[in-house]
Write a protein that binds this DNA or RNA. Structure first.
Lengths: 150, 150
DNA sequence: GGTGAAAAACATAGGGT
DNA sequence: ACCCTATGTTTTTCACC
């Protein structure tokens, strides 16, 4: 949880990751160096885990997004699936979930053929059965979180 | 699709959104101004849609993540659900999907009570039934996409 | 598309309150 | 924790190839 000024800073950077310290300082009413110090503390504390350009998948040929749910085939512990799957770079996210299935993956690929190949690799790597939900369109995504103070 | 140098630049910025033009220039072997120009073109073309700080949800009190699937209750066209739902800031992403359900939302809230309240708002706003899958842990998330040239 | 150089803006570290 | 100042870097623009 964040104190009010830190919340404002984090919110501003979540929205515009390249916002200058000078801008931030004006917005929150502190000096540039005070803001700089606060940002570094937010980074050290792990509140800010890094910065990223938001890339449009379509424009770089990743036109197919899907959610893939995993169900273990034998009763082996699914605890290390993430480690097994991490090398597959088409997997953008991996969530352990409560429900009939154990994990939900979000994947992005160039084509149905690439999806088929990826699913094969996932099944082979982790010994799971998969259920895939294809994304048709994405009205919005990656919206910055609401950051409330205190 | 991107030409080789643009692909390198986009990949570098996807990984570190605050990477300086000076650094980028060294990596790709061009002058600072050439790189600057290319980045601006990538931004204009919409390949780079912005920059964001990666915020750790846990650390700002958003300790509960879930996927919410929507099924329309009457046969009304679900085309404008996204517009209806956009004002709910706890919804981080909204995907239209192929499958039994029409949409998948990714939501982040502070508590089970907040999730309950949010689901009520979603149902009331969009006239849908919901199916919710709670995230237990997230081994990885927001990994930068693989950007291949050409 | 690309370069290089100059001006303006910014980041960063140090010392003081 | 914050402010101010000084210094080095980075961003940005522009004239030219």
């Amino acid at each position: 949880m964040l104190e009010e000024i830190d919340a404002k800073i984090a919110a501003a950077l979540a929205e515009d990751g390249r916002c200058s310290y000078t801008d931030l300082a004006e917005r929150v009413g502190l000096s540039v160096s005070a803001v700089h110090q606060r940002v570094r503390r937010l980074e050290q504390r792990g509140v800010i885990r890094g910065y990223a350009a938001r890339i449009d998948g379509e424009q770089i040929g990743l036109s197919l997004t899907a959610f893939v749910s995993l169900t273990p085939i034998d009763a082996a512990a699914p605890d290390d699936y993430p480690k097994l799957l991490a090398h597959l770079q088409q997997i953008e996210a991996c969530h352990s979930v409560a429900g009939v299935e154990s994990y939900i993956l979000k994947v992005r690929v160039t084509s149905p053929a690439a999806l088929e190949a990826l699913l094969g690799e996932i099944r082979a790597t982790a010994n799971v059965s998969t259920r895939t939900t294809v994304v048709l369109s994405t009205p919005f995504e990656d919206r910055p979180p609401v950051i409330h103070p205190s």
